[in-house]
Amino acid sequence: MKKVRKAIIPAAGLGTRFLPATKALAKEMLPIVDKPTIQFIVEEARKSGIEDIVVVDGKSKRSIEDHFDSNPELENNLIEKNKKEMLKMVQETTDINLYFIRQSHPRGLGDAVLTAKAFIGDEPFVVMLGDDLMEDKVPLTRQLMDSYKETGASTLAVMKVPHEETEKYGVINPIEQVKPGLYNVSNFVEKPNPDEAPSDLAIIGRYLLTPEIFDVLERTPLGKGGELQLTDAIDELNKTQRVFAHEFKGQRYDVGNKFGWIETNIEYGLKHPQVKDELRSYIKNLGAKLIAEDEKASK
């Protein structure tokens, strides 16, 4: 069984939900307090033992490459001013085996994965989406890799969501739990109507896939939205080799929409050593002000 060494981070989307901010700025570079969202994904990959990462990007994504490149002028300035901690933070972003591939047209997640076929070769790999930040004692990507060591099979991360929100996700139709938290799956459905959803277990932004998925993607027809849907290809793969679903029990932050991004900034800000005390005080004062305004309005 080959070791899981490589990861794909799709980052070619247009980021339309964050316009106008993303007209010229990559969505993946929107910060959570003081760190771009994509850096959290890269850090999770490294903590999980991933050795090589390829970012599938598109037009107007140059800022991602620049962020993970060296900046001699900035580094020299920090050295001259003896700002050692800042220098360490800057240099840590360049100490990564990171590669970039251009997806010429945003034809969906499946197409982004297929774009990285030559980079992956015949090895198992993980796909990590930048819209989801995951927190747990063991990184979610590492959990999937540990599961793969036992099963040798593709494994997707899933999480229970409110039933009315199933139309936002790929959803699994579980057969049984082969062990606590690991499901054998009958089929996978891309963004079903809640009335037709086979379960509340939604696919979240982490996948561990065997290389056979590439052959399946190449013959998978375009699906919802006229895009090549990775979920459709995984459902087809499941007909010839087992694909498991691993239920994530940690904390998931959805930064793919405006409210989720704001919420995540608040949550992370309350843990950030430089701003947590001021932010907590601000939230308390703001809460008291809003309560007073509501009471005044109700009289």
Rank of each mutant, 00 (worst) to 15 (best):
P198W: 08
T155Q: 03
E218Q: 14
L230G: 01
A233H: 02
Y169N: 04
G226H: 09
P221W: 04
E236D: 14
G181A: 11
K179M: 11
D200C: 08
D254H: 14
A157T: 04
V171Y: 03
K239L: 12
D254C: 10
Y169E: 03
E212A: 10
Q177W: 06
T231H: 11
V161Q: 12
V243T: 13
E218Y: 09
G225Q: 08
T155L: 09
I234F: 02
L217W: 04
E212F: 09
P211W: 08
P192S: 08
E236Y: 05
E164T: 12
D195F: 14
G225E: 10
M159R: 07
K224R: 15
D235L: 01
A202I: 04
L230Y: 10
G225T: 12
Y169M: 04
R206K: 14
F248D: 00
N173F: 06
P198V: 13
L156W: 04
G256V: 08
D254M: 11
V243R: 01
A202V: 02
I203M: 07
P221F: 07
Q251Y: 13
E165D: 14
V255L: 02
D232Y: 08
P180G: 09
A157Y: 00
Q229L: 15
I172M: 08
K179R: 15
L208K: 06
L222C: 03
Q241D: 11
D254W: 10
E218D: 12
R206Y: 07
T240K: 15
A197P: 01
E190N: 15
I175Y: 06
V171T: 04
Y169P: 02
E218V: 07
E196N: 13
L208R: 00
Q177M: 11
P221S: 11
L156M: 13
G256I: 08
P211T: 12
F188D: 05
L208F: 09
T240F: 14
P162K: 10
E236I: 08
L208I: 05
A202P: 03
P194G: 06
I234P: 02
E247Q: 13
E190K: 12
H246I: 00
P221K: 04
R252Y: 10
M159S: 09
L182R: 03
P180V: 01
K191P: 06
P174R: 08
M159L: 13
P211K: 07
K239G: 04
Q229G: 03
L217C: 06
R252T: 10
A157H: 02
L237G: 07
V189A: 05
L228Q: 06
L156E: 03
V243M: 09
L209N: 04
L201T: 04
P174D: 08
L209I: 09
E165P: 02
Y183K: 01
E164L: 11
V216S: 01
F214H: 09
D235A: 11
V189S: 07
Q241S: 14
F244Y: 15
H246R: 13
P174Q: 08
R219T: 15
D215G: 11
Q241E: 15
Y253A: 00
V189G: 00
F244H: 02
Y253M: 12
V185C: 06
I213E: 07
R242T: 15
Y253I: 03
D200I: 12
